[in-house]
Design a protein around this nucleic acid. Structure first.
Lengths: 210, 210, 210, 210
DNA sequence: TATGAATGAGGATTCATTCAT
DNA sequence: TATGAATGAATCCTCATTCAT
């Protein structure tokens, strides 16, 4: 129903929904919740303001939908990266470094930073928002834990508590990053990515390797 | 005449400054930047709205000063905790666990959460804000690195790069915390504190202990 | 469909525009630019304040439109009077006196005084305002010059430079009026009108009659 | 203390009065009544705002004093010009043209334009202001009438009603000027001055010469 | 008198939201 | 459903004026 639509009108509605959501993503990410005007969203979506209302009810709903969509996307790309651990190859260290680097890049992508800013900013006013975020990182860490558990099973790693190990690896990857890369607009230098990932792997293997 | 002030008024100016700043801290932390009304700040400070303006110029300046003061306070209490590592005592593990736990508590104190929310929320609109935050965590990590370097010198730990070790320890402490404890309003259960701190120490010592 | 308007609403937009402009005329004329509150205009127009803004953008634009409309009206009534010279009748002096008196009355009508006050008052802050006014009096004088040129052609008057003669006649009509009648609120006594007009005609005919 | 100042204080008060008035002139003339802030006046006068209040009571009084002083100055310079008619010399036309030109320049001096703007603008809100202005132009016209009467006595001119003649001459001088020169900021071109003055003299002499 | 600080009343403007078409 | 127009509530900021010193 979403993609078929070769007859003229049935898709109009859905197209507009999508356009509105896309516009909302963009504007909220750019300006934050409070700074965002419904007019901007409508304009960027190419529809009338009232149309936005008839689709989503009010500003808060538009926001929640936008955040949800950003979260879904972020979750998906993170999981895709984690999946690369399914087949670690010969050089475990190298694989960990590469996957770690990609996780860092996901974590610092413009979309992720924007999402983090939005959630963080509105955590107080929008109950349930932090839960959404916990959900995302929780599922990523769990997926990571799954992979690590497999590697422990095969004896590649020496892990008692895969959840803890996963959480700590994630922490070692994202913790040392400067705030300006986590929240700010500054582009993340590749050297930083490599260094942090390498450092994380060294410590991680010292604790969980052989 | 300005500083003696045992008679009633000469200090009035400064008192009001302080009162306004304190009120601003509170209100911004509660409601976020955009939701905060200048009236609220003035009322909470017990002064007229125009007085706030004559002291700080406009809302943005009030905000910046408030954030600065919160940052200063946060930095100070973090540094005080780190200083406890100066004399690690006999049981290094226990000391690390205890200091780690206190650092976590600092990190999740209501003030710190509020500060994080505010900075994060307004990072896009207020250039320089993330730098302020980097500065704080940077200095804490550096102080931590100083302590770790001493312990490496005395042979208590085995550390090549104290800065990296410090950053990683901090990461192991704060990274695994759920978003609801970092940004949300939920109170931080002591069990979580203990568990995370203990886990961090184990991994840390595995990498940097004997 | 827009102009027929036997169904209720299509003309609503235009009606409101008109209502707002009319209200703005009145209030600005009464109180001057700075003293005028947007609320007053909105109230007097019977619309919401925001409607005024959505139609005109800001106070300055409302003002400019109001002035423009007042100017247009003033121009029109002045031209109508001047047109009476097209057929001067047998007694030229009497006609000139009568037309002069009417021009003085136009010049001192409440609307004209208000317009003069507004333009004069805000000349410094609103570039282009004086030009608008010059335009009005310029066109009136030119129309007058046209009439005088005709009378010169028929030999009724002896005029070399009709533009100069017109400007001077206008000057003789309005120049001798006391400020209180040009700008003030005082009603213009008919005796004053007659006297000034008669004096103007005498001098004018001495210079340009036979 | 600022200029003469050999004894220390006694003149301080008066100096400040003067400074305040001078500043008020300048600022009101620049910005109009409503746009003028008491702070600006105080700042430009180099005193504290409260000092302005202790000298003049409130904004309106400051304004009235400023207008009065501007009026006095304007009156004085106009009268000085008129006085040149006391000894008209051999070529009456030339003298009239020269005096007329100077009157036009007085009339369009920055101070006079400012004064006209201020009075005109606030005529509605400040009763008595137009009277002040009538007083000025009234006295100038009367002085002019005095001179014309003398010239009539000596047979140089042929005037029945010197007051009317004076008013009309003044009208012929100022009436034809464009609004931008009367109220606006545009500098008055000398050619305009000459032309208007010459035209006025021609018509005036046609009516009142031999 | 001179002043720096404080204030209360007020005003322009914005924006989420709703209606009538 | 889509829209242009209308709105009312809210908010930042300004400024004439007053006090205490």
């Amino acid at each position: 129903m979403t993609t078929a639509g070769n007859t003229a009108r049935p898709r109009g509605r859905i197209d507009k929904q999508q356009a509105i959501l896309a516009a909302a993503f963009a504007v909220f990410a750019r300006s934050g919740y409070a700074q965002t005007r419904m007019d901007q969203i409508a304009a960027e979506a190419g529809v009338a303001k009232a149309t936005v209302y008839s689709h989503f009810g009010d500003k808060e709903q538009v926001f929640r939908h936008a955040v949800q969509a950003l979260s879904d996307a972020a979750l998906e790309s993170n999981l895709a990266v984690v999946e690369q651990l399914a087949d670690p190859g010969a050089d475990l260290g190298a694989t960990l470094r590469s996957v770690g680097a990609e996780l860092i890049r996901c974590y610092c992508s413009p979309e992720s930073r924007a999402l983090r800013r939005l959630v963080c900013a509105e955590a107080a006013q929008f109950p349930g928002l932090t839960e959404t975020m916990d959900e995302v990182s929780g599922r990523v860490v769990r997926a990571l834990a799954d992979r690590l558990a497999r590697l422990a099973l095969t004896g590649t790693l020496r892990i008692d508590d895969p959840d803890l190990a996963a959480a700590q690896w994630a922490a070692l990857l994202t913790g040392p990053l400067r705030a300006r890369y986590k929240f700010g607009a500054e582009p993340l230098p590749d050297a930083e990515v490599q260094a942090v990932s390498a450092g994380a792997v060294t410590t991680f293997l010292a604790a969980f390797g052989h």
